[in-house]
Design a protein around this nucleic acid. Structure first.
Lengths: 232, 232
DNA sequence: GATTGACTCGTACATGGTACGAGTCAAAGT
DNA sequence: ACTTTGACTCGTACCATGTACGAGTCAATC
């Protein structure tokens, strides 16, 4: 069911010139191999990485792919769909590096990888809270579940343990990213934090907001949580 | 610096009629006490509660306040500003119910109140990740900091402990709300989850996604975390 | 040669944020 | 008494964006 036409012809290699300073002049496909869900998702991720959540518009996406805007809609339902696909595409997990470690090492590796994947694409922390679970997230939960069971966590506690770990990782990652996102100007942000923390003495003394060792804090806190969860 | 005019006069009690079925026909101020930052924020929260994040538009907000859209901009910088103010306004903490409990009780009370406040306004979980720290959040962190110090947590560990708790609460709350947000149709959502979890055997067996005792899981997981954090 | 169905895309519209500058009004200054 | 001022209101206009609609292409099949 389709036929007809109306306007003029394409506008293939137009690239509005205002958007010319893009990274990766590489893999601009020479022959524009026509659209596909995969190419769209890949382009969306590139755009999100470069421009953030608000930088992704259907028009820009089409531009980048050398296609008309409405062509995208043959492959995806709508913009939400693009977000879902981009998010899940970034959360794939390839498993622990070597053959079996101890369960704690496995869990830590997976969770640190999770956090790292998201921080490589900070927009993911803004998207995750509002979208449903994609296959890659579910795989991670599945893996976590298996590992904890094998580790001897009581059946009744496994779900609580999973959610606790999930919560911890999500909270840490989202928070971490929001400090990066909410002020591009590092110096100004630091200033603002200092000014703020002056009004909150205890926080100020401990430099809660000024400490930069996010990775260390993440690891250490995760340690505490695992201590609490360990079958004693 | 200002003068002149151009168009016609107001459109005070218009209320587009499509939006007539609003809750609280109460506190519609009879005399339209003119705009103020506070009234704007209050109206924004009402709108967000009723319509969600996407439901808040400057036009609707103005409508609800019986004012012109552009009048809002005298009191707030822009829409982002409205979001910031609305979010912080919802996070006030009034302290623990009685006089001093044990530290653990205090911490648990504050964190459960935090979670409850946000779940009362589910849109807050979508906003928090992208905005800076407002005064009410900082107060909570301050309080937490004081309590943990008094409880005997080693100085070197206090910050890690605070962030761990924050992360846990944020993750739990955001996750919880996203399950509510991402599908209004409860039955369909449940269906979808069931279908999904069939492809992930361990998760399926433990009914990770189908268990509804969010409050219990939150409390129990928090318990584990506090176990790990407790000065032993 | 006609049909079909997968895919592309221009046009058009509705919605939303907000720049701009004109307007009101009460209080202070003269 | 008039003017000035500055706090506040608001209509208009513009621009960006998502996407409905329906027309168009083209290769494979009949």
């Amino acid at each position: 069911m389709a036929a007809k036409r109306s306007g003029a012809r394409g506008k293939r290699p137009q690239r509005t010139s205002e958007t010319s300073e893009w990274l990766q002049p590489l893999h601009e496909p020479r022959s524009e191999p026509s659209l596909s869900r995969e190419r769209i998702v890949a382009a969306a991720v590139e755009l999100l990485d470069a421009q953030g959540v608000d930088g992704l518009t259907m028009r820009r996406l089409a531009d980048r792919l050398g296609s008309g805007v409405m062509s995208l809609y043959w492959h995806v339902d709508n913009k939400e769909d693009v977000f879902d696909l981009a998010l899940d595409s970034v959360l794939e997990y390839r498993g622990p590096p070597q053959i079996a470690q101890d369960w704690r090492g496995e869990v830590v590796h997976m969770l640190e990888d999770w956090r790292a994947s998201m921080l490589r694409h900070p927009w993911s922390t803004l998207l995750l809270p509002r979208r449903a679970l994609g296959p890659n997230i579910l795989s991670r939960l599945e893996l976590l579940s298996k590992t904890l069971s094998r580790a001897g966590v009581a059946d009744a506690d496994v779900n609580v343990a999973i959610w606790s770990l999930w919560n911890y990782v999500m909270g840490a990652t989202i928070t971490r990213a929001s400090f990066d996102l909410s002020d591009d100007d590092r110096a100004a942000a630091q200033q603002r934090l200092t000014r703020l923390s002056e009004r909150y003495p205890t926080i100020e003394r401990s430099r809660l907001l000024l400490d930069n060792d996010w990775d260390g804090a993440f690891r250490k806190g995760l340690g505490f949580l695992l201590d609490g969860l360990s079958p004693r």
